[in-house]
Design a protein around this nucleic acid. Structure first.
Lengths: 145, 145
DNA sequence: TTTTATTTAATTGTGCACAATCTAATTTTG
DNA sequence: CAAAATTAGATTGTGCACAATTAAATAAAA
């Protein structure tokens, strides 16, 4: 029955820390007029410039029910454009705008700021990221079976 | 600029794994007619039987905007009751019902089932839980300053 | 003791998440 | 080719999260 105690669960610190982490980002992201999931989309677009909704969903593990309205809001604020592909009309391509590109300059300092608030070492951070990613990939593989 | 790549962030695997973890719980919790945050409330009530909303919020790091409607739904399904304290009328006490207690029997197997789906060792799980909790507590202390 | 400040919940509003369903476009099969 | 299956997104509905405001009760201070 000990199994059912909150403090014995892995899932809880994962859930709580994930939310506290986005709370840590919030003051920085508010200055850029972004939410945390919108910030993740921008990270992808700063890297790739042009992506389908499908691809964004695969990278972030999010479906169209989440992404469609989120991307529409980001289109309204001028960070990106959405156009249906001419080769395959089912596909909607998301493209970074000039304003979207500009925003990257304001974001460069964020990761360092967050890191400094965490009071952990760089080595800890790296190993933790690795462990979490490993579990995540394990789940991904399972899904494919 | 590498800092701004999705794959170099700690926050992202944390965010993604947290959601995938609740997805892992979902099929089990649906059988109990619970959502994941509701399950966390039940874990607390199975341990303590009687808790104020304030206390639940402190334990789960959730505020009344989240808890008030969530607890009302759980009251409607008969898992708990909500009564204003007579000593201090500001306080609402949440009390486990018989049905709520009964539900524990159906939940005992869940942690083991989840663990077996994760394909990690018990040692890994424990150390991971410890690391995440440590960071979480670090943030908690910061808030108090 | 009356004012002031604090505390606990509830309320309102916005933005995710995600299941389920739907539509339209493309592929695959017979 | 035509019918069936698959795929990409959009839509609808429910349930969190959380900021900001409000209301009521209690505690603290002048």
């Amino acid at each position: 029955m000990d199994q059912l105690h909150l403090q014995n669960q892995l899932c809880f610190p994962l859930y709580a820390l994930s939310r506290q982490m986005t709370a840590l980002y919030r003051p920085y992201l508010e200055k850029l007029d972004l939410t945390y999931p919108q910030y993740l989309v921008m990270l992808l677009l700063w890297e790739h410039e042009n992506l389908s909704i499908k691809k964004i969903g695969c990278e972030l593990w999010l479906d169209s029910g989440t992404l469609t309205p989120l991307l529409k809001r980001m289109e309204e604020t001028g960070l990106l454009t959405r156009d249906r592909s001419s080769e395959d009309e089912r596909v909607v391509n998301v493209h970074l705008t000039k304003e979207g590109r500009q925003l990257q300059k304001k974001a460069v300092g964020i990761p360092d700021n967050i890191f400094s608030e965490l009071s952990i070492t760089n080595a800890q951070l790296k190993s933790l990221k690795k462990e979490l990613s490993a579990i995540l990939n394990g789940l991904e593989k399972k899904k494919e079976l």
